[in-house]
Amino acid sequence: MKTIHKEKWLFIGSDRRLEICSKLFEGMGIPSAHFNSNAYSEELGQLIASFQPGHIVFPILEMQGNIPPELLATGTKLYVGVASEQWADIYQSSGYQVVRYLQEELFIWENAILTAEGFLREFYNGSNRCINGKHFYVTGFGKVGKMTAKAIQALGGKVTVVARSEAQLSEAVSLGYSIQSIQKDFSEEDTVLVNTIPAQWLFLQNHSPLRVYDLASAPGCLKPGSFAEYYTIHLGLPGKHFPDDAAQVLAEALLRME
């Protein structure tokens, strides 16, 4: 039987947050290692066999391939980001505990704040315009939508919240935002739409002047057949713009889930 070292952490992935997390753990006196790849390999297997971690943090997105369960010591705890049930079941069916760190409640809120600030940076860099006095549609009013709307409003922007949920629309009104039905045709709008809805719901005609910043997960919000000259998708904004802050948020979440 392999010996498990519960205090040892292994971080896997090329996202800078994971590398920085490993260094943060080392700084706290927690034995840690980082493997800079998003795919399983024989080299990774050799590292696991020699290091024998008690905690393994997988890449933000689903890792290519799986670590053979027989390489893992009994009791190893696994932390995954975005991963299918089929991928995760290989470990769960072998008796390993799998925790989804992207679903930890406080982490979601803190990550949403960083995502909203990341959007501001993308907007400034992409438009060279200020936010004060401009009109923004924010579609979806979950955590990222709420934080994005709040950031825009704080800088003097006018926010219209677009959502399907009556509860979300009612909450938006109570917070002082204008609201709009998601059925609206946005094709002729010469303004900015910030999407946080993880579904293909938006159809745009060719040459639409609408600027779309998509913060939701791939494949984005555009319906098949849409033509959007000013559409951009922005994934992983916390890690892209604020890797040290994002790593600190992730490290704290992992320690809460330990």
Rank of each mutant, 00 (worst) to 15 (best):
M1E: 14
T3F: 12
H5A: 13
L10F: 01
G13M: 01
S14V: 08
K23G: 01
L24H: 09
S41G: 10
S41P: 08
Q46A: 13
P53L: 12
V57D: 05
F58D: 00
F58K: 03
I60K: 00
L61E: 07
A73N: 06
A73K: 07
Y79E: 11
V80T: 10
G81M: 00
E85H: 05
Q86Y: 03
W87Q: 01
Y91K: 13
S93W: 06
V99F: 09
L106P: 01
L106K: 15
W109Q: 09
G118F: 06
F119I: 02
R121K: 15
G126M: 00
N128W: 02
I131Y: 03
T139W: 14
F141V: 03
K146Y: 14
I152A: 11
A154H: 09
R164T: 07
I182Y: 02
F186D: 03
E189M: 10
L193I: 04
N195A: 14
T196A: 08
L202S: 11
L202A: 12
L204P: 01
Q205A: 09
N206Q: 15
R211E: 13
R211M: 11
Y213A: 02
K223G: 15
K223D: 14
P224H: 15
Y230V: 06
H234I: 01
G236V: 06
G236K: 05
P238G: 09
G239C: 06
A251K: 14
L255Q: 09
M257L: 13
